[in-house]
């Protein structure tokens, strides 16, 4: 019991201190996760809308691939990128390995199928009358997609939240392609792993508390936006 209270006390002291190292880690975590989510959403949501609206042979297979992608182990996504980014790899000339850029790319790879899959699900659940009306409109496929995406926007917001939650909480991909370099590529999750490896359980728990707080704030903001949007419409 004494040990547990010690660790928890240390954790809260660590958070309360909010030292420069923690601030730096938090800032990088937010920037990387936000950019990765943005890229994943910008590519994934339109793809999801298209997938949800279209009827073609093999759509089921594409859907299955996307759903599998939603569950891809982050460390596997990291490894795939690592192999590409190795100096002698296909993208080695970018010299992007162990940079925040590589971390953004790896997490975007994780965010994309989630953004696409959740959006496609929301579009597929569109009322049959809405789908019928939509296909009767005299608009381009892109215009149709825009109307459909707007119609299911609470679902799109859920896709954003799910993608952000996944990337900010994952450690496998950022550790492999980021390398957890102090002051360069260290984020909350990789810092937690490192502190835990060192048996600095208080600091590890403190970082975990910060991570959960960030995830909670982002989700509250999105839920609030959803509810406000629902009330307005």
């Amino acid at each position: 019991m004494g040990f547990l209270t010690d660790v928890v006390g240390e954790a809260f002291r660590y958070v309360a201190d909010f030292g420069p190292e923690l601030r730096e880690i938090l800032a990088l975590t937010l920037v990387v996760a936000a950019l990765a989510t943005a890229i994943g959403v910008v590519l994934g949501v339109p793809f999801g809308v298209w997938l949800g609206l279209s009827r073609f042979r093999g759509r089921g297979i594409v859907m299955a691939i996307v759903n599998t992608g939603m569950g891809i182990p982050p460390v596997l996504a990291g490894l795939l990128l690592l192999i590409l980014l190795w100096n002698d790899g296909i993208l080695g000339s970018w010299e992007a390995l162990f940079t925040p850029g590589a971390m953004v790319a790896a997490q975007a790879l994780l965010a994309f199928p989630i953004a696409a899959g959740v959006t496609a699900g929301a579009v597929r659940n569109l009322n049959i009358d809405a789908r019928e009306q939509l296909s009767a409109f005299n608009v381009s496929p892109a215009g149709r997609g825009w109307i459909a995406g707007r119609e299911v926007w609470p679902g799109v917001a859920a896709a954003v939240a799910a993608a952000f939650g996944r990337v900010i909480a994952e450690v496998g991909a950022v550790l492999v392609v980021g390398g957890n370099i102090e002051g360069e590529t260290r984020v909350l999750t990789t810092a937690i792993v490192q502190e835990a490896r060192q048996s600095n359980l208080g600091a590890a728990l403190g970082l975990g508390i910060v991570l959960l707080a960030v995830a909670l704030i982002v989700n509250l903001a999105l839920t609030w936006a959803q509810m406000r949007g629902e009330a307005r419409v």
Binding site: N127, D129, E132, Q133, A136, I147, W153, V233
Partner: peptide
């Protein structure tokens, strides 16, 4: 259509 759908907005 028989049951015209009203979109958000």
């Amino acid at each position: 259509p028989q049951r015209p759908y009203m979109f958000r907005g």
